[in-house]
């Protein structure tokens, strides 16, 4: 589940691709390539968001347990 790409870098790249696509001087071939790259990257970002797992844990003496505020 651990993704290779760094979310922050990925977001930066998404922005860069958008800027490049919007500039006039790309050929159609290049545009299509960039478009595919961008869509792929956004898919990955969404996957990172989806795949994160809700966990509330407490670490005591190096041992990790589920934590709930209700059982105080």
């Amino acid at each position: 589940m651990k993704e290779e790409i760094n979310f922050e870098d990925a977001m930066e790249k998404l922005e860069k691709i958008a800027d490049e696509l919007e500039s006039e001087d790309l050929s159609l071939d290049e545009s299509v390539k960039k478009f595919e790259d961008g869509m792929e990257l956004s898919k990955k970002c969404n996957e990172i968001l989806q795949n994160a797992e809700k966990k509330i844990t407490v670490l005591i003496n190096g041992e990790e347990k589920d934590f709930s505020v209700d059982n105080e």
Partner: peptide, 13 residues
């Protein structure tokens, strides 16, 4: 958890 239901919060008390 309201902002991100999938967040992992790890507490060291």
């Amino acid at each position: 958890t309201r902002r991100n239901p999938n967040v992992h919060i790890r507490l060291i008390p």
